[in-house]
Structures are given as C-alpha cells and as structure tokens.
Amino acid sequence: MLFACSGYDVMLYDVISDQLQSALVDIEAQLSALYKEGLQRSSLTLAEVKGHICTTTILEECVTGAIYIQECVPENRDLKRDVWRQIDDVITPDDVVFATSTSAIVPSLLSDHLKKRHRFMVAHPANPPLLNPMVELVPAPWTEPAAVDRARALMEVIGQVPIVLNKEIDGFVQARIQAAIIHVAWQLVSEDYVDVESLETAMSEGLGGWYAFMGPFDVEHINADGFVDLCKKYGAKAEQVQKTFPKPELMQGPAAKKLTRDLQQWTPSNRLTDRCRWRDRRMSALLQLKRKLDEEGKREELK
C-alpha cells in the first residue's frame, strides 16, 4: 500500500489465490479508512492507488523487472530460505534490493546460501506500517552499502522513517527494547509487586507520554542538566535497580494464566480485532497530532 500510494507498481505474490483476493479486499478497506481520515500519504486518488496493485500466483512473474522485493512469509527460517533460493534463481539484475520482513531472524541466517546475498537485508516495519512509519534496515555482514542506501532512499520516498543498524543482532532494535520492557513488566506482575491494570497504566499514562515523542536518552537528557549530569546524579541508582532484574524465563505457569485472565476481562479473545481497530484509531489521531505539531514547529522556525 505504501509503495502504491507513492506511484510505484506493486505485484503481490502468493501460492494460494484466495490469499491474494483476501489481501485485495483488506487493502481496499484499509486505504478507504486512511482516505476518510485524511491520513493518506499520496496525492493520488484511491482508485489510482488501487490501480498500481496487481496479483499473481507465479513467482517469476512477480519478481521479474522488480527494483525491490519484500518477502513477508511466516517467521519460519527454512521457509524463508527456500523462497529466497527460488527468487535468487530467477533474478538476474545485480541492483535489485532483497528485503525480508522478519522480526527476529538475523539476515545472515537467511541469505548465506544466495548468489546475490550482497543485496540482502532485513526491512522490518513497525506495526501497522501505515500508521507507524519506523522501519528497521539490518544488513548482513556481506550486504553492500549501496544496497542499504537504495533501500533507505526508497523507504524515505514512500514516507517511512528508516533506521539502519551498523550490524546484525537478535531482535534488532525495536524487538530488543520490547523484550526488555516485557521482561521487567513480567517480574513486577508475576512476583505480585503490582497488578496488571496498574502496570498497564504505568506505561500508557506515564512512560508512554514521553516515548510517543522522544527516545529514552533524550527523555533523560532533559530530565536533568544534560545526560552527563543525569549519569552523575542517578547512574549508581540505575545500576542498583538493574541488578535486581531477574534472569530471563519463559512466561508460563500460574502467573501467565492470571495475567491472561486479567487481559481477557478487558479484551476477550473474540474482541481482539475490535481492540486493534481501537488502537489504530488512536494511532491515527496521534499521527495527525504529530503532523500538526511538526507543521507548527516549521512555521515557528521561519519567523
């Protein structure tokens, strides 16, 4: 959708034709909602955007002539490796970007068998990409800088905000930060320091207010007289707290069951789709607010 909104022709491929038809229905619904809320990233009409998207069940037809290939099959290493082997056998130009949307598998484990592995990288978008513009670009050890530069330029053209890792690491950036938050949150709930509702409130009504606009270091930088001052005042205390973090453990057992019961009270399993729509409406409103504030900030700079 993002590429089509920018005027690129997009070909969707799947081995199951019903999946493709379902995707087209979902795409139209999502784009219609964006246009209704004024959040489209395009001067094109909805009909023009839809006209840039077509489908095929033939892999060669999909990738031939492409300048960028984004693979989004399930998070299964063997499946991804096989799909890329098939693509590698078809593609002949040496400047096509190979990108996988994996959220945790490092690119070297998916591309070491490819003839064109120097074009391969992870391009992992945040969810949902239409409302959450950050995308992680993670090169393998053998990825050429030119391929990364081209992917970054393409992401910027379609309105995404790319970050480029200097080297690969499990979980990349976003998932590692998420894992750290879940790790500490799990301890606080499972060891009965706080109930689930209070933990959720601490994030949504506390830390979330900062992190919607700033990163963790920037937050701490202005919480004191600069980051060096903060380290002097609170560095020892931060280390003391960090030493109380537990060892990693699987989230299971009685604590997981209790947490699930609490979450089900707010969002039963049959209402998860409704809850996603609720989230997306609020993310839409936040995106609109950010755009408004950015525009006001630019006007202030020009005065």
Score class of each variant (00 low, 15 high):
L263H: 04
A212G: 13
T143M: 00
R119Y: 03
H52D: 04
L114A: 07
R271P: 00
K258F: 00
H183Y: 04
Y8S: 09
M203Y: 06
E28S: 06
V122C: 01
D9R: 14
S32K: 15
K116E: 13
A140Q: 02
G209Y: 10
T260E: 13
D89L: 04
D274W: 03
P162L: 10
M283N: 09
N223R: 07
H124R: 03
K115W: 01
T102H: 04
L109W: 02
Y13M: 01
E37F: 08
R277D: 09
K247W: 01
T57A: 07
A224G: 14
I105R: 00
I222L: 06
P141G: 08
R152A: 10
F213S: 05
A238D: 11
Q288A: 11
I69S: 13
A175T: 01
P248H: 01
F245I: 08
V73R: 05
P125Y: 03
Q21P: 01
D195F: 00
S111Y: 01
L137Y: 04
V49C: 10
V90M: 06
A151S: 12
V83D: 07
M134S: 09
L59M: 05
I27E: 10
T64S: 12
G206E: 11
T45K: 10
Q70A: 11
A66Y: 11
R271H: 13
L165G: 14
D18R: 13
L2V: 11
R41K: 11
L230V: 04
M251G: 06
D218I: 03
F120K: 02
V122I: 14
N270W: 08
C5S: 15
P268L: 02
P162Y: 05
R176C: 04
L131F: 11
I181Y: 14
Q240N: 06
V184T: 12
P145R: 08
M1P: 06
R275E: 12
V161P: 05
A47K: 12
L114D: 00
V189T: 10
Q70C: 09
S103M: 06
S111R: 00
V10G: 07
F213H: 11
P93H: 08
I53M: 13
L20Q: 10
V241Q: 14
D294P: 01
F172Q: 09
D170W: 00
V164D: 10
D18Q: 08
K258M: 04
G253F: 05
C54G: 05
A147L: 02
R299L: 06
A147C: 15
A146T: 15
Q70M: 02
E197I: 01
V196H: 10
P216R: 15
R291K: 09
T57L: 06
P74K: 07
M214W: 06
L24W: 05
A285Q: 12
A126W: 06
E191G: 07
K292C: 04
Q70I: 01
Q86N: 04
